[in-house]
């Protein structure tokens, strides 16, 4: 918010409400989440498995309707950052680590929060699994966070093409 200058500021609060349409593909994905399933969708052209897709394979420009893939709930943390400052709308307390989780069998990572490990020990290649909320619904918030599986870290070579 700007500081008030001498007679130079007018405040004009505005509010706009929107009905947000998730779309066909995202609806399918979120309905899966509501059943504690992480559903990927294959691009019929390139065969890549998209998860949480907006509806199209971004390289082929076609709907990701080449088959549903029930993905395991664990994967590799490809890269991440540790957030130390709060920001508007933030849902977690600082500091926290958030990053890209490449589920085993998926070709695109999901964004997620990494917990049950001190944030300064979070590292690239960490193997993580989903921790679900007790009550799940059609929202990614049903995945409370991701925690280390205890498996050895993934070899850099196995995920470097996803960075």
């Amino acid at each position: 918010m700007p500081e008030r200058g001498e007679g130079t500021i007018v405040e004009r609060p505005l509010r706009l409400d929107y009905d947000y349409t998730a779309g066909l593909a995202q609806s399918r994905f979120l309905k899966g989440i509501a059943q504690k399933k992480i559903l990927g969708e294959r691009c019929p052209k390139c065969g890549k498995v998209y998860v949480g897709s907006r509806g199209s394979c971004p390289t082929d420009g076609v709907a990701t309707d080449g088959g549903e893939v029930d993905l395991p709930h664990k994967g590799t943390l490809t890269t991440f950052c540790v957030v130390n400052v709060p920001f508007a709308g933030q849902s977690v307390e600082c500091p926290y680590a958030s990053g890209y989780i490449l589920l085993d069998g998926a070709d695109i990572p999901l964004m997620g929060l990494i917990q049950e490990i001190p944030h300064d020990q979070v590292r690239m290649g960490l193997r993580v699994e989903a921790v679900w909320e007790d009550e799940v619904g059609p929202t990614l918030q049903s995945i409370k966070y991701w925690k280390p599986t205890g498996e050895p870290d993934a070899d850099y070579e196995t995920y470097k093409m996803h960075l």
């Binding site: 950052c81 920001f87 709308g89 933030q90 849902s91 977690v92 958030s98 964004m111 929202t139 990614l140």
Partner: peptide, 16 residues
């Protein structure tokens, strides 16, 4: 960082 329904807000601005 606008809040889109169905998704947790994790990305803190452009730096994040």
């Amino acid at each position: 960082a606008m809040r889109i329904p169905f998704q947790p807000a994790l990305v803190a601005g452009a730096g994040g």
